[in-house]
Design a protein around this nucleic acid. Sequence first.
DNA 1: TTCCAGGGGTAGA
DNA 2: TCTACCCATGGA
Length: 299
Amino acid sequence: MPLASLRLTPTPPFNFAETLSSHGWVVLAPNTYHKETNSFSRIEELPGGAVVHLRVSAEGENVLIRAESAATLTAAQKNVIKTRVAHMLRLDDDYSTFYKLARKKGPPWAILARRGLGRMFRSPTVWEDAVKTVLTTNIAWGGTKRMAATLVNKWGAPSPLDPKQRAFPTPQAIAAVPLKKFEAKAGLGYRGPYLHQLARRLSAGELDLQVWLDPSIPADDLYRQLLAVKGIGPYAAANLLMLLGRYDRLGYDTIYRDFVSAKYFSGRVLPLKDMLAVYDDWGEWKFLAYWFEMVMAEE
DNA sequence: TTCCAGGGGTAGA
DNA sequence: TCTACCCATGGA
């Protein structure tokens, strides 16, 4: 079986382990987290339909991708893999102004820069991140994992190396399933019709989610575009803004409510405006300040 | 049995 | 812009 070793060089400071564990995405199918080796694996479908097994780990300061495939990969396929993994790990992002602000605030914030915190793990496509975000709404984490696994197992492209292992389903694969059948087999509850409609719109070319990665779109416009998608409300839109690299708008959910009320208001829940004002002075970095303050509090 | 989980859509004000 | 009400699903 052809095996290719590909390498990526992140901009320091980069912390591979912290990036993987930055939030829960790394354990959602088709990702598998390997704690013992500080790595993750993933089945990935490439343009043209080839399905490959990726194993991603740290190699000194670099990132090593081992790609196993049925046929020898072309240079173009290797480039796609490198681009997608770099996107997942946010290797090209610049956190220097965030770290500068953290250092200015002194302890305990200065540790953010020393540890290279800030990169939030994400999916290769906005489609996958949008689906997974909807799968986190109004459900316990175990339910999110179950639903992601069901989508992959039922409609993901199978690997020629091991047909039991599958990639994340494309919008086309989901759009091809009749709605009633999709609802019955996916077990997504009220989320089913929303995701099916999104898949159909993407499949028909009515909508292109990748354009949301364009940093020139004003944040407020982007937020409105996100809310215009059925199934995406204020919480999901804020989570997606984070995944798209915009950290200036906080999502208010039960996690935020519980953490901020305990940390800043002696367990009381204040009006929304006051709850959100806690991180105001972090400007464009509000979400990362909130998230990593919570990470540090758990340690 | 009842509650609720990293909410969202809709109608009506 | 805000509120009440309903919306599947599965674990506790």
